[in-house]
Amino acid sequence: MMTLKVNGREHQVDADPDTPLLYVLRDDIKLNAAKFGCGLGQCGSCAVIVDGTAVLSCVTPMILLEGKQVTTLEGLGSVSEPAPIQRAFIEEQAAQCGYCIPGMMMRAQALLLKNSKPTDAEIRAALEQHLCRCGTHMRILRAVRRAARLMETADAAATTNRSAQ
């Protein structure tokens, strides 16, 4: 048994320490967003955020996660209360089949946490490890740029709210 902190909640997980995080998220914690794409760290579908940076959960064994915080797409927001990155992807209709999108979103979220105004080249570089087969790339790039703007607005709003209190 080990303890895994996902989206702010602690889970007791019965998995060997060499089990990749992906299978624990999907199989034990029953989360959907992190996807199996290759299991080899070549496509990015399984990306989640660990302590603020994006990692490929299919090649991240559980032993590396002790004491760390895992965030999945489910932890960012919901259909009724979408996070800025989720709103951005909906508003840009940035999906066709959508299978690669959660990994892309987590990578983009991690980028935006560190760099709130990334250049186009920085966005492309961040997404370099991620494959999309439907050819939704143009929309994905637009969605990440939109998310940056939304997050800025949200930050500004939060600041205003705080100063108003």
Binding site: K30, L73, Q86, I90, Q93, A95, G98
Partner: peptide, 22 residues
């Protein structure tokens, strides 16, 4: 340009694919 009905679940981790069936 009505927004697609399937996208919200796909971008929030809803069950959207046969892969997600349990």
């Amino acid at each position: 340009p009505v927004r697609r009905v399937d996208i919200p679940a796909k971008v929030t981790g809803g069950a959207a694919y046969v892969q997600d069936m349990r």
